[in-house]
Design a protein around this nucleic acid. Structure first.
Lengths: 132, 132
DNA sequence: GCTTGACCTTCGAGCCGCTCTAAGGTCTAC
DNA sequence: GTAGACCTTAGAGCGGCTCGAAGGTCAAGC
């Protein structure tokens, strides 16, 4: 199948697929006589896994590495590594949620203070960096 | 004062200040004879507000617009507009938290399924886009 | 045989908000 | 006269696409 079909089947775009290929995250596919990229079901599987992993919020690098490994028959290792990544990721998500909630708290407070025509600068203070 | 001092006072970097200037988000400051940028307390106020607004997760464009307005004496309008922006922003934060929680739920579920050596692709499904 | 329209190609810029490097100039203190 | 801290500009790089320009290829319909 050609790139547009592959894109449609996996809910992505031809642009993105070429982007992945250019950055070495997908193998270079065969070409037909006129230079069009030609894909097989194997490619569908590999790109499908890559996209699914991306949707889990893994980085493109992680996703492409794991999907590559799996395509080369090391799916078992991938499962193991993915389990670890998921644990890490959940920790990260928890931290992000906490941050967003703190910001929300601050915004709510601020909206109250702003009501009576004070200058913004007097109301909004600069945070000194609060690192993890 | 010079750019390094300004940066330190506001907890940012000279690089970032030049970046803001290049992109028209800060006025071009006076220069000393040797070409060094020269800043005043007015600049401290303006950049301080810009940074504070950024820390509220406003876009750089919004932050620079509001800090510019305020520096030109329209702080009252800024307060009004900011209040509206904060409401919007809180809605956005709520949506983001919800998304993160949904993802977390998915990861937790997935980690369970992955335990017994199944192929990742059989466990992880592709989400069809779930738009706002 | 000509046109239309859908597909494909490559190359390269643009998005956001910085962050950093390279390659140099300038100033102060010793 | 030199070390070290500061400053200057121009430009690349990050992640992860997204889009546009400018053109080639193909099948269907007239």
């Amino acid at each position: 199948m050609r790139i547009g079909t592959l894109a449609k089947r996996l809910g992505t775009t031809a642009h993105s697929i070429r982007f992945y290929e250019r950055h070495g995250m997908l193998p270079m596919p065969a070409r037909t006589g006129n230079g069009y990229r030609q894909y097989t079901e194997v490619d569908v599987e590999r790109l499908g896994l890559l996209i699914a992993l991306r949707q889990l919020d893994l980085s493109l690098e992680q996703a492409s590495e794991l999907s590559g490994l799996c395509a080369e028959g090391h799916c078992d290792e991938v499962s193991l590594e993915l389990r670890e990544l998921l644990v890490e990721k959940r920790g990260e998500l928890a931290r992000r949620v906490l941050e967003l909630r703190r910001l929300d708290f601050r915004l709510a407070h601020l909206a109250g203070e702003l009501t009576d025509g004070k200058s913004p600068r007097s109301v909004i203070s600069l945070r000194k960096e609060e690192r993890s």
